[in-house]
């Protein structure tokens, strides 16, 4: 369980985040949605530990944690190192953790198939499509084997078709690895399609406006036209416009 308590964050005297309180249970998939500049990415930076908040604290299972411990963070850009091939890029997190080369290779080979990357392990990043590059970034994050994953618009730079195929795949992969996931997105449909809870944030300063529980029994990964889906979408849009 992640507890985000009373987080406030200022940047050059401007209040970016105000009194953020959020609890995420183990295995939950939550989406955070909000207008540009509402501090969504800053919140993820704070949860990951790479940015220090002005006040407040983050605990995992009741304890404060070190950066890189228990939490993997995936940003919008795939951030693949251009001088490393897919295999070496995927293994970078484990390398930093000091795991032996043979074990890293074993883990990569073991997971590559689930990520549809088994044929591409020796490719360089510039030889891959955007969707494949993003899969490598997912693999890198999953390999670290932290129970919590922060995803900052991971599909934001992809085209609609690639995005929709990745949605389905993402759900399968994360269910399989039973991770706790916090996804930040601009895309309302994506927020509803993937999560079991949608957190709506407002801007100036960024704070939690509302949260919606998504009934997963009523949401089909491919169908964005069901009554339930449209009703939920309309409500979120209303919140965002206000």
């Amino acid at each position: 369980m992640i507890e985000i308590k009373n987080i406030n964050f200022n940047f050059i005297n401007q209040k970016i985040l105000s009194d953020i309180n959020l609890t995420v249970s183990s295995g939950e998939f939550i989406s955070i949605i909000g207008p540009s500049g509402c501090g969504k990415s800053t919140l993820l930076n704070i949860i990951s530990g790479i940015t220090k908040p002005k006040t407040g604290e983050i605990t995992v299972e009741g304890k404060k944690i070190a950066v890189g411990d228990k939490i993997s963070y995936m940003q919008q850009k795939d951030l693949l190192l251009p001088w490393r091939n897919v295999r070496e890029n995927a293994g970078i997190g484990l390398e930093i953790k000091g795991l032996p080369h043979t074990i890293i290779q074993k883990k990569i080979s073991h997971l590559a198939k689930d990520f549809g990357l088994e044929k591409f392990l020796n490719y360089m990043p510039h030889e891959l499509s955007g969707g494949l590059r993003q899969r490598v970034a997912f693999l890198r994050a999953v390999l670290i084997d932290n129970p919590i994953m922060l995803l900052d618009e991971p599909l934001g730079s992809l085209d609609a078709i690639t995005k929709s195929s990745l949605h389905e795949w993402l759900m399968d992969v994360f269910r399989k690895f039973s991770k706790t996931i916090i996804l930040v997105t601009h895309d309302i449909e994506e927020a509803i399609l993937l999560a079991n809870r949608v957190i709506v944030m407002s801007t100036n300063p960024g704070r939690i406006l509302k949260e919606y529980i998504v009934d997963r029994n009523l949401v089909d990964n491919k169908d964005v036209t069901s009554n339930y889906f449209i009703k939920l979408k309309k409500e979120i849009i209303k919140d965002l416009i206000l």
Binding site: G68, D69, Y73, Q75, K77, L81, I92, I96, K97
Partner: peptide
């Protein structure tokens, strides 16, 4: 963003220098 990514992996400054900066 690369620096942020390396930081989020919990790397040391020396690892950052060797694995990111030098290449």
């Amino acid at each position: 963003d690369m620096i942020r990514m390396f930081n989020s992996l919990g790397c040391t400054k020396f690892q950052m220098f060797r694995k990111l900066y030098i290449p």
